[in-house]
Nucleic acid binder design. Sequence first.
DNA 1: TCTAACACAGTGGTCGTTGT
DNA 2: ACAACGACCACTGTGTTAGA
Length: 306
Amino acid sequence: MPYLTTASKIDQIVAEYTKAKTLWIDTEVADYNSRNPRLSLIQVLDDPEDMSGDRVFLLDVLDQPDLVANFIQQIMVNPDIEKVFHHASYDVKFLGDKKARNITCTLEIAKKIPYYLLPVPNYQLKTLATVLCNFHYIDKQAQTSDWGQRPLTEEQIDYAYLDCIYLAQVHKCLLELQSEGDPAPEAEDLIALNLRYTQIEEQWKLLNSEVEHLQERIKKAMQAQNVSETSFFKLTAYERKTVKAQFLELARLVQSQGLNFDFSITLTQKLQKDLGGNLEQLSVEIDTSNSWRLTPKNQESNSENE
DNA sequence: TCTAACACAGTGGTCGTTGT
DNA sequence: ACAACGACCACTGTGTTAGA
């Protein structure tokens, strides 16, 4: 894991990265809990197969805004290079923010995968690396260490390059899971899908009804017994308010005050009926959309009817 | 510490289906 | 014709999560 500290070497590797198709990137930030966080390291991996760390370059950019600006200009805004991060929005804040293009976020991919395909307690990179890629003994202690100090400790360096490797591996596994979980509808086997559905439907009903029932009972019991917290649940009450006004009064106010206050409201079927013929005097906008409904058929009663 | 993005619960409403 | 039902949606407000 080459650790680059000089401007010339960093600019040189950045120039090489402009030819890359995909880069796996992570950053470390100093003073993250202050008003002025400083970018400390940019770690870049250009070969996802590399597990040795030889292809992870650590760019030391602490208090080097010119180097960061160059990285943003050459890499981040370039739409032809895919940049992969975990929780991209955090890192991208420091790397060009809204100007950044072609960003992939492994956190977002992971969260979109249905729970039963990826049953994890949380979506931290460490957890995903452990569950998906069988990495063990991941030490996250360095994460909150002082990234503003120089020289960095050996642990910090190890942590920094390992994170990139986890990232690329997690990304690879996520893409595989994603393609499994998202088959082309044209190619789906409807018989198999229906079979699987009927297989688990009964268990689902049993479990679902019991979970809901338990929630209700726990809620009522905690209220009745004045318990706001157990080791499993927290019960909180909150006030909801809805502010309402009479339509006529509002209309008059807007008119008399000459307020710039206009928007469309949905004319429900009831309102349309109440308006009757007067409706024709309004220039209504009509939105049409199609939606599809899946209705399970009751197999037993069907056969009875026949 | 920051912070956007989510997830969730609860309320109230629409609208089509179903049974009488 | 009408009520009951459920699927679905919009909206308010709370709380959690992930990164260093």
